[in-house]
């Protein structure tokens, strides 16, 4: 079985702060990490390989420094790594991103594609299903568990708000992984060593079969009109109180707002 896992290098958004003077994002010194849902997807792929045998490839599209997450994936145990990087692919929205990734994944070859449910910088959850559409294969989003029958069928526990669907899908298909579906393994010292010995395949626009009108900024239907820091609603009253006094204060507030009589 050939499994391709899509991973993304993202800023650790828990570390992103707002400059209180200028109101802009402070990105300096914010560490880059492998997107958590993607890491869970990679772990799921490695577990399938450990059990049934498979070749696990990882692919990322991004700036040249995205190589770092590919090295991390190799150190965790991925077999092959592909970096798709080209100025012409830059500025892409989710549709243009999935067009480029789908073309690259076709070239690699696949039976199963795993992506994270969503990336913590964009939070869209769109690229996975869009890749599946471009490749004309089924997608199963929000995977909580993935099993394989050892032959040609994948069984996925798919999460909804109030229920799960147990879904059987024939390969090839695409699955998007929930970050809490497993605990990703650590890199091993041997893995780190071999990660630096493994050659990463670097592809540009000319290495994939795509239409220039469907990639990058040009091929993106959506445009960012503006971005701005989140405005907070103004603060109300703030007082320092304890115990009984505080309780009285809260009760009077609840009465004022007609929540209690």
């Amino acid at each position: 079985m050939r499994i391709t896992v899509c991973i993304k290098q993202v800023p650790d958004t828990n570390e992103v702060k707002i400059d209180s003077v200028t109101g802009t994002l402070i990105r300096d010194g914010v560490p880059s990490i492998m997107n958590p849902d993607d890491k869970a997807g990679l772990e799921a792929a490695l577990e399938l390989r450990d059990k049934y045998g498979a070749e696990v490839s990882v692919i990322t599209m991004g700036l040249p420094q995205a190589e770092e997450v590919l090295r991390e994936a190799l150190a965790m145990g991925a077999d092959k790594a592909y970096l798709l990087t080209d100025r012409k692919l830059g500025g892409a929205d989710t549709i243009a991103t999935s067009t480029a990734l789908a073309a690259a994944i076709s070239k690699i070859g696949f039976d199963l594609i795993i992506t994270g449910r969503q990336a913590i910088d964009g939070d869209t959850a769109q690229v996975g299903p869009q890749i599946a559409e471009k490749l004309n294969i089924p997608n199963i989003s929000y995977a909580q568990e993935i099993e394989f029958d050892g032959n040609d069928t994948i069984r996925v526990k798919r999460m909804y708000e109030d229920r799960y669907h147990i879904i059987n899908a024939k390969l090839p298909c695409l699955i998007t992984a929930l970050g809490d579906m497993n605990t990703p393994r650590y890199m091993t010292p041997g893995g780190i060593k071999s990660a630096y010995e493994t050659e990463i395949t670097v592809w540009g626009r000319n290495d994939i079969d795509v239409d220039d009108m469907q990639i990058g900024l040009v091929g993106s239907p959506t445009k960012v009109a503006k971005s701005f820091p989140k405005a907070l609603k103004g603060a109300g009253q703030k007082t320092t109180l304890d115990g009984e006094e505080a309780a009285d204060y809260i009760i009077s507030a609840l009465k004022e707002k007609l929540i209690i009589r």
Binding site: P11, T13, N14, V16, K17, I18, L25, I120, D121, G122, D123, P221, T222, K223, V224, A225, K226, S227, F228, P229, K230
Partner: peptide
């Protein structure tokens, strides 16, 4: 919202 809610972006599809 983007970047974990730190930033808001207004998007168009012209």
């Amino acid at each position: 919202p983007a970047f974990g809610g730190n930033l808001m972006a207004t998007i168009m599809c012209p």
